[in-house]
């Protein structure tokens, strides 16, 4: 079993009021020096079988058509370390 991680972020030009609200709360909580916060989504996919090129291509297609709305969001796909390696 392998894990593939898809990160989805709003495109840079899209206003992110949720990230802004988080950023504005930081100084009040004593966390200084953070000038900007952008909030995104992370999907962890447990993949059956080998994560070969074909499997990654399918996941890319899934991200493009479903996990992200490419009108407003960018996404990245990467293979995470094998599940057994984590403790």
């Amino acid at each position: 079993m392998a894990r593939v991680v898809v990160d989805v972020m709003l495109k840079p030009e899209i206003l992110d009021p949720q990230g802004q609200a988080v950023q504005r709360a930081l100084p009040r909580l004593g966390f200084e020096g953070i000038t900007d916060v952008r909030q995104g989504k992370r999907f962890e996919l447990e993949v059956e079988g080998p994560v070969d090129e074909a499997a990654l291509a399918r996941i890319h297609e899934m991200a493009e058509t479903f996990l992200a709305n490419t009108v407003i969001e960018d996404f990245t796909v990467r293979v995470d370390e094998p599940a057994e390696a984590r403790s």
Binding site: P17, N69, V71, I72
Partner: peptide, 17 residues
């Protein structure tokens, strides 16, 4: 309808949340 792309653009959280 925007998700189907029958209409262009997308809908997001209100700017004041």
């Amino acid at each position: 309808l925007t998700e189907t792309h029958l209409l262009p653009g997308a809908m997001l959280r209100n700017n004041h949340l």
